[in-house]
Design a protein around this nucleic acid. Structure first.
Lengths: 216, 216
DNA sequence: CTCTAACAATACGCACACGTATGGTTCAAG
DNA sequence: CTTGAACCATACGTGTGCGTATTGTTAGAG
């Protein structure tokens, strides 16, 4: 374990961050197992000897990378959409932000895939819960009861996560351009009911047993 | 490569399937990388020598496991819900089936996580597309236009996939018992509009700009 | 100029998994 | 009883990644 002096802390932190960044990049493309010291060192143009000065173990690097990730996925994201106080707009922004960065989506899925690892699970849970709680608060501000708000937040979050997966696994099934915007509008208008009755349920007849079309 | 005689084919196929089953189980719990010959052999009470008689390589085992998986996830599943000719009920059944087996969900996510592997990607694409196409047909039978049916199928499939992920990553966020049924009903009633207008869009005012409650 | 902290290269031991080679066991056919 | 196929064990070589130890190299403080 190095004992960094105050003078050199800036440079040391910078290179440690470089390692963590490279680790995140490796996760995004090759999954958690791609965080291997020797390949990363090769990619960074150094050898293991450098790595084990900055970190004590591979696990420490993973923690550092996950710290970086958690920060970028909660603090940074939410800070960017917080200014809007309108809950409707906030939810819409979450959706648009979510579908904006392809890399962030891949990263999320790759990290979540390592949920058997207890440390990773810890981070994934925190990030997921933060996002779902954020959505729940939006729905509550929209006038939903606590219970309904949780349901809708879970629903919306699931849809969001599933879209990430579809885009990764079957990109051809995800439209682009105008058709994608149409798809996005459909999801937004469906997932954000705009009138709420006194009992905390949406107003338009979602649960009315009004049989489908086609078989009158 | 062995040249099995007709007499012993039954036993040989049986043990080859045992290997493939064990491989699937390994994927479900430890991901694709857990499909390692030597650990699997230990778990099956044999050694590598046995494995390399049945298969030529680790990749061949993965293919066999994925064959098994593809069959269980498309043919078997769809056969079980096909009897119902009512498209509404078919979609509902897809949702209920999807949320029924925890193991199948984990398996799906674990396999999908290895989409960088070209062979795996091939299987994942086929299974995903088969399911989405099935849903699309249901929506079309419900009276939707081709374009709208695709949108709704993608939407429903994304929600379904996301719920798998939520249940895996943050099980506490997924309710159980009566509350889960409530959640399920919410998703079903939201994702299956029951009246379709002539232009192929749902009838109730999804896209009417009828501002939300709370800020009159 | 010297010394020391920060940083990096090299070399080593270890563990584990892939794949191969080869020998051992069982069983049924001839 | 012999033979050969089916099936499995053992042993080996190779690659690769982790972690450690040891030895440079560089730059700034004194």
């Amino acid at each position: 374990m190095p004992a960094p002096s105050a003078a050199s802390e800036a440079r040391q932190n910078l290179t440690a961050n470089a390692w963590a960044d490279a680790a995140l990049e490796a996760i995004a493309t090759g999954g958690l197992d791609a965080v291997a010291v020797e390949p990363l060192a090769r990619k960074l143009g150094v050898t293991k000897g450098s790595f084990y000065w900055h970190f004590n173990s591979r696990g420490e690097l993973i923690r550092a990378a996950l710290d970086l990730w958690e920060k970028s996925e909660t603090v940074d994201i939410l800070a960017r959409i917080e200014p809007t106080s309108d809950p409707y707009e906030r939810i819409v922004n979450v959706f648009k932000q979510a579908n904006a960065s392809y890399r962030a989506g891949r990263l999320y899925l790759a990290i979540a895939a390592g949920e058997d690892h207890p440390v990773v699970n810890e981070y994934v849970r925190r990030v997921s819960e933060a996002r779902m709680n954020y959505l729940r608060d939006c729905y509550r501000d929209l006038g939903f009861s606590e219970s309904q708000a949780r349901h809708w937040a879970r629903f919306a979050y699931a849809t969001f996560m599933g879209n990430l997966q579809i885009r990764r696994d079957t990109p051809d099934a995800m439209p682009q351009g105008a058709e994608f915007n149409e798809y996005l509008r459909l999801m937004i208008t469906t997932l954000i009911p705009r009138e709420v009755a006194a009992d905390g349920a949406p107003e338009h007849p979602h649960v009315v047993p009004m049989r489908r079309a086609g078989t009158p």
